[in-house]
């Protein structure tokens, strides 16, 4: 279990994450929503161990995350970042096999089976031999998701893993946006804690077990979809008026309120 304990993180002298407390439970998909600059990516970096909190602690399996050896952490925690450069022309299967690196430095047939299966799972059957620079942005993104799946293969079995997806749907078409979130649910069902950063409130409402709303580095609200995804709270977090278009009960669907101009976006120094 990954726990944020009054975590504060600063960048350029400004707190971009303030006093955040939360525990990520295995088996649940948590959606993280917030406007640009709300601190979502910083929170992901804190959870992945890339960033160290200036105050508070990130605890993982009752230990402080910063004391965990990177190699051990890499076997249980996978991250799909927003942008992964690929200046060299790897094959898709090579990239997915890199997800096996924490487990096995020199991949064997078992690792290849896992990697092939991961590619199948993200809908890229037969793409293994393709060079990454011949793939579209969305296909590349799915290759990186497959890499994360291959990395978490063991953790999915022993229910110890955490998967961090930072805007995984950014480059994807509608079908694959749904597919990636279905995969997130499948992975969670195997006992992995999944955190997804999203901008699409409806995807969050449709697939998340719980929702975190962030604004200005603070955790505005966190809880089950029905509790948190209400028009007033969303307005406060996302700075835009939304109208719920389906009746109460069931998962909500929102559209931007017609004729309501969004409030002037805050300008930051």
């Amino acid at each position: 279990m990954m726990v944020l304990d009054q975590v504060t993180y600063e960048r350029g002298g400004r707190a971009v994450v303030r006093d955040v407390c939360h525990a990520f439970t295995p088996g649940r998909v948590t959606a993280l929503l917030g406007a640009n600059g709300a601190g979502k990516s910083s929170l992901v970096r804190l959870l992945s161990g890339e960033a160290r909190p200036h105050a508070g602690r990130v605890r993982w399996r009752e230990r402080c995350l910063t004391t965990c050896p990177v190699a051990e952490l890499a076997r249980c925690r996978a991250v799909v970042s927003q942008f992964v450069p690929s200046p060299f022309a790897f094959r898709a299967i090579d990239l997915v096999l890199l997800g096996r690196l924490p487990h096995n430095r020199h991949p064997d047939a078992h690792d290849l089976a896992i990697a092939t299966r991961a590619l199948e799972q993200v809908g890229l059957v037969g793409f293994g031999e393709r060079s990454i620079d011949t793939l579209s942005g969305g296909e590349r993104q799915r290759v990186h998701v497959a890499r994360a799946l291959a990395q978490l293969h063991e953790a999915r079995r022993n229910g110890q893993g955490i998967l961090l997806l930072d805007e995984p749907t950014a480059h994807l078409d509608l079908v694959h946006q749904q597919r990636i979130l279905q995969i997130a649910r499948e992975v969670a069902a195997e006992g992995v804690a999944v955190l997804v950063v999203l901008h699409d409130v409806n995807l969050a409402a449709a697939y998340a077990d719980e929702v975190m709303l962030m604004r200005d580095g603070r955790l505005l609200a966190v809880g089950a979809v029905a509790m948190v995804m209400t028009c007033p709270l969303l307005r406060e977090a996302l700075l835009i008026d939304l109208t719920r278009v389906n009746p109460e009960g069931g998962r909500p669907v929102f559209v931007p309120t017609p004729d309501a101009l969004p409030p002037e976006p805050e300008t930051r120094p």
Binding site: L73, R77, A78, S81
Partner: peptide, 15 residues
């Protein structure tokens, strides 16, 4: 090989 993805990504893979 992992380093070619960037230092951040490589660190996430335990390098």
């Amino acid at each position: 090989n992992a380093l070619l993805l960037g230092e951040g990504e490589a660190a996430l893979l335990g390098v």
